[in-house]
Design a protein around this nucleic acid. Structure first.
Length: 438
DNA sequence: TCTGGGGTCCTAGGACCC
DNA sequence: TCTGGGGTCCTAGGACCC
């Protein structure tokens, strides 16, 4: 069975749990992370309902709700308008992502200090391998208690799940929140998982749940003994992997921290408070999103071969189109015109557009792209090296004076005139006013 | 005043080549 | 003129995650 261990217990771990046999994988999850950082930074907000998310009147959703707001039924991913009705007195903020990244880095540094085997899953989650003998011989429960205490010293709290593989650790971490430490002792994996609904296992979403239900499979215990050919219709080539995970028998690998995961794509998308209907408006949106993508690419030293344009017409219905370029690029002067051309394939005059997205992918990670970048000829044959210099210069101005201090005439014009201010403000979460025009 | 934004991974079909 | 198969690349779409 699983056991809840007090995060601050002084009793020696081996007295409570006995010696640990085999792998020990932990999953650390920061409790209501964004909201907790806001409460840390704004003492007056502590003990009060705080919601980090989009505007209730602009198709926004809740990113994170503090535990005080959850009492009213507010949840992540809930439309902000609904959250507002449930908890009108909540303190609302769009969030401060640079600050969250900074706090996250401090938490990851604590993990890295305890073990070199850390898999960062997201800004507020990471797996870590503390198998006795792999790096340290200390009891895994003791290490988890120390990690929780050190995180707490930073001013935020975490919940930790500990077990013999990632599936167990992940599910255990969700058992007891906030400030939980849930331990699934080696040998008890199968009994821990068996009664849980299939949806509890990561990788099984709404669609897989529906199909499993049709097969009469509702729990992980049933999944663990399900017929393989039937499972193959649901999970394809992953059927065996999913069944082994449900059996508690998955063997997890937690890579060393420096085997950093490479970025596969960089994109920006935006849902508009009011649908766009004019081609000029949509093209302006593509330009503005493209600038942001270009800036992020240059900042990270990435150049992509493939441009993707994504549109949503109404909620749930959308289309995307992509095109491979003749050269990898990080310059919006090159990929924005291509994205505009892609518009013709997936949009026709008059269709209302609620979301526009622009992305670059297919990076040349170790190729000799760098020299190529500066003598690139764009799709129209223009001498784009000059224009890329302009992009780089703009980056530097933005770095000093704020993200939206400068922009290209075209985007600015639409920002000010054709597209109402509210649609385009705050693309980077700051700096609402454009102060100069190039 | 219903339903974001950042991603990753997989699949399926068609084009194309041998 | 009719025929098959395998491999690979490209593209669009969808499932899933936080």
């Amino acid at each position: 069975m699983d056991n809840r261990a007090p995060q601050d217990s002084n009793a020696p771990a081996f007295e409570l749990f006995g010696p640990w046999e085999g792998s020990a994988i932990g999953l650390l999850d920061l409790d209501a992370f964004f909201a907790s950082v806001e409460q840390l930074d704004h003492p007056a907000w502590r003990g009060k309902p705080v919601i980090v998310g989009g505007d209730p009147d602009k198709r926004g959703v809740v990113s994170t709700a503090s535990y005080e707001a959850r009492v009213f039924g507010v949840r992540s991913a809930m439309p902000s308008a609904q959250a507002k009705r449930l908890c009108p007195q909540a303190i609302w903020t769009h969030g401060h992502f640079d600050r969250y990244r900074e706090m996250s880095a401090q938490v990851m540094a604590i993990l890295a200090d305890e073990t070199p085997f850390v898999d960062r899953v997201s800004i507020d989650e990471a797996f870590f391998d503390i198998s006795p003998g792999r790096y340290s011989s200390e009891h895994p429960v003791s290490i988890c208690q120390r990690i929780a205490a050190r995180v707490s010293d930073l001013g935020v709290t975490c919940s930790i799940g500990l077990g013999t593989n990632k599936t167990i650790a992940k599910i255990a971490s969700e058992r007891e929140k906030p400030r939980g430490l849930t331990v699934v002792v080696p040998g008890t994996e199968r009994t821990f998982l068996a009664p849980l609904p299939v949806r509890a296992m990561s990788g099984i979403g709404a669609s897989a749940e529906r199909e499993l239900k049709r097969l009469g499979i509702h729990t992980l215990g049933q999944l663990a003994v399900a017929d393989q050919t039937a499972l193959r219709r649901v999970f394809g080539v992953n059927a065996d992997v999913m069944r082994r995970r449900a059996q508690g028998a998955e063997v997890s690998r937690v890579s060393a921290l420096d085997e950093a995961d490479e970025v596969k794509s960089v994109s920006n998308e935006r849902t508009f408070a009011h649908d766009l209907r004019e081609r000029a408006d949509i093209e302006a949106a593509i330009s503005l999103l493209g600038e942001s993508v270009g800036r992020r690419l240059r900042k990270r030293g990435l150049a992509g071969w493939t441009v993707t344009l994504k549109l949503k017409y109404s909620y749930g219905s959308g289309k995307s189109a992509q095109r491979k370029l003749s050269h990898p690029t990080d310059d919006e002067n090159v990929f924005v015109p291509v994205a505009r051309e892609l518009l013709d394939g997936i949009w026709s005059q008059g269709m209302p557009v609620r979301l526009v997205g622009v992305g670059l992918s297919d990076f040349n990670l170790h190729g000799g792209v760098q020299t190529d970048l500066f003598c690139e000829v764009d799709e129209r044959g223009a001498q784009s090296s000059d224009r890329r210099e302009l992009s780089v210069a703009l980056d530097q101005v933005r770095e000093r004076f704020g993200a939206s201090s400068v922009g290209y005439g075209r985007a600015v014009r639409f920002d000010g005139d054709l597209i109402r201010q509210d649609k385009f403000s705050d693309l980077d979460g700051k700096d609402r006013d454009r102060s100069s025009i190039l």
